[in-house]
Design a protein around this nucleic acid. Structure first.
Lengths: 90, 90
DNA sequence: GAGAGCAATATCGTTCTTGATCATGTCCTT
DNA sequence: AAGGACATGATCAAGAACGATATTGCTCTC
């Protein structure tokens, strides 16, 4: 399933046309991104929760040269499946 | 950010009222769940991708009794942040 | 439909998640 | 506003993911 399919789902279940549906998908995604960028957690009961956690790993590996390389510290997005997703994937 | 906030985002960016917006969120989530339950992968460029992978770990741990316990094999949902999410969390 | 733009893959050592479960905290519905 | 429902945290060890990068393959845009 790709982004267009999601827009199609919106189109089929609302009074919005295709273009507006696609715009709607973008709007929602941007809202989610913004929420995460502001260090908020996203919690969608029954589906999943997303949260930003800090990375601790400070190394990596250069495959070609086969040696360790330094990695800049940063953050990571943690995804936790909710109850419904756990059921379908158990 | 929680589910109601997402519905609010829809309400503010479409001709849908609150109830329809909430219904829209459920519709989309159900489409995503169904997609995953059918072993499809979800790929939203610039945001993230979700895919179902089979679990390999076959053990667990009972904290109270402090001993290993068997775990039934099943599936797991893997989340991979897309470019935009990587940027905001780097 | 073609070209451009991301995602997928392989690699390997260290860090981190997975898994069950109860208690607690947070959210949603009545 | 309160109660019911669901997420969170703690716990431990072993197996899996993470990280960079270039190439390949799929997706999106025009």
């Amino acid at each position: 399933m790709i982004k267009n399919d999601i827009a199609l789902t919106i189109e089929n279940n609302s009074e919005l046309n295709r273009a507006k549906s696609l715009l709607m998908v973008e709007t929602i995604l941007n809202a989610l991104k913004k929420s995460l960028s502001e260090d908020e957690k996203i919690e969608i009961r029954g589906f999943a929760s997303l949260r930003v956690v800090s990375k601790k790993t400070g190394y990596g590996r250069d495959i070609r040269r086969k040696k360790q390389i330094k990695i800049k510290q940063g953050k990571r997005i943690k995804f936790r499946p909710g109850q419904d997703l756990k059921n379908l994937s158990s």
